[in-house]
C-alpha cells in the first residue's frame, strides 16, 4: 500500500504534531451531526472547541451502525428520523473549520460509496475537513478511497483492534495517513467502567510497525480514563460520553465535560 505523499499536511495532522511536540496526547471528541437537531449538533461541536477539544470527529448517522452501541445508535436513529442528511455533515465540517479547528468524518462506507467516493472526498476537502475515519472499510477494499484521498490531500484513518495480528497491524497502519484509530477493546462504542489493558497492548504492538500518531477510542469517558490513556497513546477519542452529556445537558454539558477531559489528557502526559 504505497501512495504519493500529500502535498501538505492536513490541519488535523498539524494539530497532532503540535500536541506531540508539547509532550501530550490530543483530545478528539465525537458527536454525530443531526443530534438532537442539525443546528444543536453544530452548537455542541462549537462547545467542544470552546471546552478545549483538539480535533472534532463528526459522525454521519447511518441506518445500520454495526460498530455502535445503544447510546450512539439511539442518537443517530433520532437524527435520521428528523431528516438528517449526508449533506448536513459538510455544513458541520464548515462550522468546525470556521471555529478554527478541524474535523474528521466518521462514516460507514455505503454512505461514501453512494455519494461517489471522489465526490465525497472533494466535498470534505472543500468544507475544511481533514479526512475520514472508516470503521467498516479495511485497506484491502479501499483502493478507490486511497486514490481519492491522495488527490484531495485528505487523511485516511483505518482501525486496528486488539485482535489484529502483526501482519494486519502492518497492513492497516501502512494504509493510514494522519493517525491510526486503535480500538481499545473488542466491541462497539459505549462508556465502560475501565479502559482495560488491551488498549495499551495494541498501542504498543502498533508502535512497532508505524510512526503515525496512535489514537485510542472506544470506552473512554472520564477525566481519569483520559489521563490513563494519555499515558501511552498520542490521542484520546471520546464519543458516547459526550453524546450522553449532550442529551442530558445540551451544549453547556458538552463544554463542561470537554474541559474535564482536556485536563485529563494533560495530567496523563508522557
Amino acid at each position: 500500500m504505497t501512495s504519493a505523499p500529500a502535498p501538505d499536511q492536513t490541519l488535523g495532522s498539524q494539530i497532532l504534531a503540535r500536541c506531540r511536540q508539547d509532550g501530550r496526547a490530543a483530545l478528539i471528541g465525537y458527536l454525530p451531526v443531526g443530534y438532537p437537531s442539525v443546528r444543536e449538533s453544530i452548537a455542541a461541536m462549537e462547545a467542544l472547541i470552546e471546552g478545549g477539544i483538539d480535533i472534532v470527529e463528526v459522525g454521519v448517522p447511518y441506518s445500520d451502525p454495526l460498530m455502535d452501541g445503544p447510546l450512539i445508535q439511539r442518537a443517530t436513529e433520532l437524527a435520521l428520523d428528523q431528516g438528517c442528511q449526508v449533506d448536513d455533515v459538510f455544513t458541520a465540517m464548515r462550522a468546525v473549520a470556521d471555529s478554527g479547528s478541524t474535523a474528521y468524518v466518521m462514516t460507514y462506507w455505503n454512505l461514501v460509496l453512494r455519494r461517489g467516493v471522489d465526490r465525497f472526498a472533494a466535498d470534505l476537502a472543500t468544507a475544511g475537513g481533514s479526512g475520514l475515519i472508516t470503521p467498516d472499510l479495511i485497506p484491502d477494499e479501499a483502493a478507490e478511497w486511497i486514490t481519492a484521498s491522495d488527490r484531495h490531500g485528505l487523511d485516511r484513518v483505518f482501525l486496528v483492534a486488539p485482535s489484529s495480528t502483526r501482519e494486519r497491524l502492518a497492513v492497516a497502519t501502512a494504509a493510514c495517513r494522519g493517525f491510526v484509530y486503535a480500538a481499545s477493546t473488542m466491541g462497539v462504542t459505549g462508556t465502560r467502567d475501565s479502559v482495560g489493558s488491551a488498549a495499551a497492548q495494541v498501542v504498543e504492538r502498533a508502535r512497532e510497525v508505524t510512526d503515525l500518531p496512535l489514537c485510542v477510542g472506544l470506552g473512554v469517558s472520564t477525566r481519569a480514563q483520559a489521563a490513563e490513556v494519555a499515558g501511552y497513546a498520542d490521542g484520546v477519542i471520546v464519543g458516547s460520553a459526550l453524546v450522553r452529556a449532550l442529551g442530558e445537558g445540551g451544549p453547556a454539558a458538552v463544554r463542561t465535560l470537554t474541559r474535564e477531559l482536556a485536563a485529563g489528557v494533560r495530567e496523563g502526559s508522557r
Binding site: I138, E141, L159, S163, A183
Partner: peptide
C-alpha cells in the same frame, strides 16, 4: 485486493477486529 469477489461483488466490508 479482490479477495472473495464475484465480479464486482462480495469482499469484506467489516471492522478490522473481525478480520482474524
Amino acid at each position: 485486493p479482490g479477495i472473495g469477489r464475484f465480479g464486482d461483488f462480495g469482499g469484506r466490508y467489516v471492522p478490522e477486529a473481525l478480520i482474524p
